[in-house]
Amino acid sequence: MNKARSAAFPYILWSVLFTVLPLLLVAYFAFTNGSGTFTLDNFANLGEYTAVFVRSLLLALISTLLCFMIGYPLAYILSRESARRQQIMIMLVMLPMWMNFLLRTYAWLTILENNGLINRLLEFLGFAPLHMINTQGAVVLGMVYNYLPYMILPIYTVLIKLDYRLIEAAHDLGANPAKTFFRVVVPLSMPGVSSGITMVFMPAVSTFIISKMLGGGSSLMVGDLIEMQFLGNAYDPNLGAAISLVMMVIILISMLLMGFFDSEDKAVIM
């Protein structure tokens, strides 16, 4: 027991140095001004960024929902395939993740641009060009594209472990494939769904590079706002820290809500 505990020491050191300490620093910056005295001004000024917060949450929610709507059926189909085909298909799902995140997003830029691939194709076919780049739609597309594997994989992992005899038992008791799916498969895959939602929603709500590259200035998100306070021309680390802190609280509340709905869900099925 003691040996096992001392084995955790490197991690404890790590998390104190790189998680707890930075968090305390963020809190310190958030509650002080440039000269180091205590103030709540940083939070008082956040009101003017409400639109950014709302937009971030909304776009992240839409992206998460789309990821779920695309990812769940795909994970389900994947889990029904033969072992060989599963391997190949999982490879295809993971393949984009091997490429650099910036590069992937940049590729979308060249596809969606006003004189990008799609528009040139449309022009060639004699259609009017579409305005796609620098829209919120482009941001959502970028997030769905980038985060989809994080939705598929946890759901897929739960689905392949699903005991096939339970599906046979449902068939045996008169449930056709659709009823079996909604009464047995879906409830039993909820753990995968909730971790999938977590793994998509969290990075989506705080993303900055996707919105910057595909959304232009029109779709400023919280992540961009924070970046601007530290690296941009609006340099104000204290405000940046305050925004980060509020963002953390928002994510925390979302996660708690998720957990609440999750158990609510189970209670209804029970």
Partner: peptide
């Protein structure tokens, strides 16, 4: 005829009870 249309029910080896239901 698929299982769900047969007037036959099964008690499975190792039961196969639904873990998400009471």
């Amino acid at each position: 005829l698929p299982p769900y249309k047969r007037h036959v029910n099964t008690v499975f080896q190792r039961y196969a009870l639904f873990p998400h239901l009471n």
